[in-house]
Design a protein around this nucleic acid. Structure first.
Lengths: 243, 243
DNA sequence: GCCGATTTGTCCGTATGTATC
DNA sequence: CGATACATACGGACAAATCGG
């Protein structure tokens, strides 16, 4: 449902790259050709290409052209990337996902929670603890804090399906960006119990902490995700900038 | 040194945000005002703002304005972010860095290396193993593979200072982008020995594997960085996209 | 080495659409 | 409803880099 023209062009070129229509390390058609292909202005083509650069799909070279540097990844583990829910990830990785709600409660942010999550003191929050299974294997424990005023009406029933689905399709709120920090931590007894980890095997988990904002610029979610280390895989593309 | 006008505007606004000239969760001056402030076109202002969005510094809200969502981070550990060398990171984190070269050899890519690094079979490579210290504490073991044809004349002496400095300032090659994958792995005997890790304490390391490209679109480097888990911290900002 | 054609990079002005207030 | 603000799109101009003759 992307109405924007640059989105359509972006998706079309992306699909062509993924399906191998353009060979690895070869140049794409020039901007001029793409302008005629898609019947649009130069800026619009350039915007689509700019998004592919951010994806790490292509590289632009002044005076030469746009080079395809996309390489398909071996999809043998659970790959994290942009902002997406567990269910979206599961589908993208061609697996079946299931979620179990371990805890669901309403709390008020005290100093400790304020320091950990960044929510103002006294905020009314939902605290949810969930366990995510992929192909019936427990992979992730999530500790979610949602701002009640931004995500009203959350229930345990919704939490065991998809909270993001509820947020976007029922509340019609738009999720915009998410600041994430990845670290490695010692496993806790909770991790050990639910993720079926043995301290003699791995004694760490991969931890992703995220602050997520909606289209009003309000931070409405803080989540700490604790991942089984042997299934954790995070992908990223960094673009070098002048300082 | 940034001659581009949008770079200057980007840096100026970024600095203003970091120094608190704009309060958290408040709106920045409107595009129209910024156009007059910087005496430029609307596209140029929008480009600068677009970069700040990618940085997770601001969020644009149609019909309202641009909201400052920047929060300073507690700089108590070694923070990874964009593409930068260990020395650059050390400086940014206000620490003193030192590098020790453990191995330096020239090799030819066989099937095993091809599979691991993505370099074509038979490529001539430099293989370098280095240990990075921060404030005299060993934090990272790097396994570097450099394409000899792209980075000629590399020596152990250069490797113990800064290879990126050599690449950019002596060879005048431009580093463009880097595809990275983060995982968690069991520690090896090498890790244990050099990072001074105790298996009874942490038995894992954080691993960052990266494929790095230059401005010719050539992948010239593959590196596996193995980090002490208690000092590893990776930051990221993800922007939600329509599918 | 120079020159001209091609290609990407930067910048501007304008018009129209859409969301907020 | 009108004013304001961001989003999309177009077209044009010039600069900078690459490449072939």
């Amino acid at each position: 449902m992307p109405k924007a023209k640059y989105e359509q062009i972006y998706k079309d070129i992306k699909q062509k790259i993924e399906s191998g229509d353009y060979a690895y390390s070869e140049l794409l058609p020039s901007e001029n050709i793409l302008i005629h292909t898609y019947d649009c202005s130069r800026n619009t083509v350039r915007r689509a290409i700019g998004m592919l650069v951010l994806d790490g799909y292509v590289q632009t070279i002044q005076g030469k052209g746009v080079r395809n540097i996309f390489r398909p990844v071996a999809q043998n583990s659970f790959v994290l990337g942009g902002i997406e829910s567990f269910h979206e990830s599961a589908i993208r990785n061609n697996k079946t996902g299931r979620t179990q709600v371990l805890q669901f409660m309403e709390i008020i942010a005290d100093e400790k929670i304020q320091a950990r999550t960044g929510f103002p003191l006294g905020s009314e929050l939902y605290y949810i603890q969930r366990l995510h299974f992929l192909d019936e294997k427990p992979l992730i424990i999530n500790h979610n804090y949602f701002l009640k005023s931004a995500v009203p009406g959350l229930t345990a029933d919704i939490a065991c399906h998809s909270i993001y689905d509820y947020i976007e399709h029922t509340l019609h709120m738009t999720i915009v960006n998410s600041k994430r920090i990845m670290t490695v931590e010692k496993i806790t007894q909770v991790d050990e119990k639910y993720l079926h980890l043995d301290v003699n095997d791995y004694n760490c988990v991969a931890v992703v902490s995220s602050h997520t904002y909606n289209s009003d610029g309000v931070m409405f979610e803080f989540t700490q995700s604790r991942h089984r280390p042997d299934y954790f895989r995070f992908q990223d593309n960094a673009v070098r900038r002048i300082n």
